[in-house]
Design a protein around this nucleic acid. Structure first.
Length: 301
DNA sequence: AACTTTTACAACCGCATCATT
DNA sequence: AAATGATGCGGTTGTAAAAGT
């Protein structure tokens, strides 16, 4: 009997009340024997806990579930069972798979390290370099310091040959946008984002501060020794176990205006997972830098 | 239409921990 | 305390379906 037939049989059996009798009377090891299955007990248990259990929620993850996963992961790390315990109807395996196939990639695409939940310094640094090259081609830029895949990119950037007067509006516009975004961060009531004198800690020294106004990511070493695991729905004061990185509230990243304004509509994000371009734009704006369309982030992740 | 590549997810594997003897 | 078995957990793999060429 091939494995599919066995699984079908197992499903058929476990769907009936008989399986509950088996489970009451014996352990997982004896279950397949009693049920006449050519499977080990461990396999049956896994099949039950990850697939056949009647209380498992089916279908795509909701917006709230996704945010919960991200926030819990920022505290718990890859403790999938702990995360699953706070998401009724979802299994650790399901959450783990969803993380690896959806959330992790999305975070990477938007310049966030999925392990530390902090913005990736290399991407931010690249952004600042590109911005500087655009506006101040005569200064700073030393292409030889860039990875080769970036050098071509930088060389494609239109050179501003005009004076700073003409470059001014661009800078002002950029700064305005950035400042508005920063305001958006700090004024977002759902954001736990804090600004505490950490700019010099976060912004790479090579940055031209007049051009790149990155938000000040929160760093509070006093909160890292005993991360408090929040109850579902209570993420106020949420801090990540920072692993030496500055903390960054993913809530701020995922709760984009686009998604937050109409969570119901956000389901389209999941129904049609091809919305990566929208997401790229959306998240990039929040992170204050643009990811060029021609740049394949995965190449250097 | 045929083939290749990518994506998504169930299942597997090995190790850790707990419970029982 | 040690041995053994059951269960839990997280990383990895296999594969069907979808998408791309």
């Amino acid at each position: 009997m091939d494995s599919r037939k066995v699984l079908g049989q197992l499903k058929k059996i476990t769907s009936s009340s008989a399986i509950f009798n088996f489970m009451d009377l014996a352990n997982w090891r004896s279950l397949p024997k009693n049920a006449g299955l050519q499977r080990c007990g461990k396999s049956c248990r896994l099949r039950w806990t990850n697939y056949l259990r009647p209380d498992i929620k089916r279908g795509r993850f909701s917006f709230d579930e996704e945010e919960t996963i991200i926030q819990l992961h920022s505290v718990l790390g890859n403790k999938w069972s702990a995360i699953a315990a706070r998401l009724p109807g979802r299994t650790d395996n399901e959450i783990k798979n969803y993380w690896n196939t959806h959330i992790r990639k999305r975070l990477l695409r938007n310049g966030i390290d999925p392990v530390t939940h902090a913005p990736r310094l290399d991407l931010l640094d690249l952004s600042s370099i590109l911005t500087s090259a655009w506006c101040n081609p005569s200064t700073l830029l030393n292409l030889s310091t860039l990875p080769s895949q970036f050098q071509n990119l930088v060389q494609q950037v239109p050179v501003c040959t005009t004076t700073t007067t003409s470059a001014g509006p661009f800078i002002n516009q950029t700064e305005q946008i950035m400042q508005e975004n920063v305001k958006g961060f700090s004024s977002n009531p759902t954001s736990t984002f804090s600004c505490q004198n950490s700019q010099e800690n976060f912004v790479p020294s090579s940055l031209n501060e007049s051009l790149v106004s990155l938000p000040n990511f929160y760093c509070n070493s006093t909160t890292t020794t005993d991360p408090k695991v929040p109850e579902p729905g209570d993420y106020s004061g949420f801090q990540s176990a920072n692993n030496g990185y500055q903390n960054f509230s993913i809530d701020s990243v995922m709760s984009t205006p686009l998604m937050s304004q109409d969570p119901l509509n956000s389901s389209s994000t999941y129904v049609n997972s091809s919305s990566t371009e929208d997401e790229r734009e959306c998240y990039s704006s929040l992170l204050k830098f643009e990811i060029p369309e021609s740049l394949d982030i995965d190449d250097f992740l």
